[in-house]
Amino acid sequence: MSRPLLRIVRGEPTAEEVAAVTAVVAALSVSRPPAPSRQRPLWTDRTGLLHAPAMPGKDRWRASGLPG
C-alpha cells in the first residue's frame, strides 16, 4: 500500500484549500527543462575585472592587486 502524498495533521481545511495545496505541490514536483543559458559576448564579460578577496598574511598586500 502506498503512502498518501499529503496528510492533514491540524485544522479542518475545506475541499478547495486541500485542492489548492495539492495543485501547488503537484506543480512543484514537475521537473522542468533547464532554462536556456544566456550567452554574453566576450566584450561585455566583466568577470576578468573581479579579483579574489584579500587574504591575511605576510606580504599578502602585494598579491592583492594581481588577478587570481
Rank of each mutant, 00 (worst) to 15 (best):
A19P: 00
T44G: 00
A27Q: 13
P56K: 04
E16W: 04
S31A: 10
Q39W: 09
T47S: 07
A19F: 03
V30D: 03
V25A: 06
R40K: 01
R32T: 12
R32Y: 02
T22K: 10
G65F: 15
E17A: 09
A20C: 02
R62D: 04
T22W: 11
D59F: 10
V24N: 02
K58V: 08
R32V: 12
S2A: 08
A19K: 05
P67A: 01
P4F: 08
P4E: 03
W43Q: 07
P4S: 01
R40Q: 06
S2K: 10
T14Q: 00
V18C: 05
R40Y: 13
A26C: 01
A63T: 15
R32Q: 10
G48I: 04
V24P: 00
P34F: 08
R32C: 00
R60E: 14
P4Y: 08
E17D: 07
R3M: 06
R10E: 06
V18M: 09
R10N: 03
P13Q: 07
P56W: 15
P33K: 09
V21M: 11
Q39M: 04
L28C: 05
P53D: 09
S37M: 10
S37R: 13
V25K: 04
E17W: 04
R32K: 05
P33M: 06
T22R: 15
L42P: 11
E12F: 09
R7E: 08
P33R: 14
G48H: 15
P4K: 02
G68E: 13
W61K: 00
A63S: 11
A52W: 12
G65S: 08
M1H: 06
V9H: 07
S37C: 01
S29L: 12
P34G: 03
A23S: 07
P56S: 07
T44S: 07
T44Y: 04
E12H: 10
E16L: 05
P4T: 05
A35N: 04
S37L: 14
A54E: 09
P13T: 12
A20S: 05
R40N: 01
G48Q: 12
E17Y: 06
A23M: 05
P56E: 10
S37N: 03
A26M: 04
A35L: 14
R62G: 00
L42Y: 06
P33S: 10
G57N: 03
A27W: 15
L28S: 01
M1T: 12
A15R: 15
G65H: 14
L42D: 11
A54K: 03
A19W: 02
P56R: 07
P53Q: 08
P41G: 04
G65P: 00
P41H: 11
L42M: 03
A19E: 12
P41S: 09
G11K: 01
V21F: 13
L66D: 02
R46Y: 05
R3P: 02
V21H: 06
A27R: 14
H51K: 10
T22F: 07
R46H: 05
T44N: 00
E12R: 12
P56G: 04
R38T: 15
